[in-house]
Amino acid sequence: MDIVFVNLFGLGLIGLIVWYFWLSKPEGTFAGITSDGVQEAFIVVKGGYSPDTIRVTAGRPVRLVFNRQESDPCSERVVVDAFGLSADLPQGSSVPVVFTPIEAGSYEFACQMGMLRGKVVVS
């Protein structure tokens, strides 16, 4: 009896893992627009990117300002591969990364090892 229960629980847990890590989609944060017309988002880097999904519109420059608040070297560099950009993130200082997405789509930014990930959703 308890074997059945444990296995059902295990399957449920697996389902939860699949849903939480792979299937669920976070809504994301809309980037603010500055007076000079740049879509700007401030991202805190600490064990991940907060927020990790930035929503922007195409054809207008995007400025992601990263502020790394941890000493873990995993996050010391952010790479926006689709735009060929990368930036060192010294602990505590804010580093802007600027690009202009032309086409709608989802563009990933990640640490160099690809462990921390976020994305810019362009519509």
Partner: peptide, 11 residues
């Protein structure tokens, strides 16, 4: 915990 909040998992 930080990773979990971002719906990701790591080492």
């Amino acid at each position: 915990w930080a990773a979990f909040r971002h719906r990701s998992a790591n080492m």
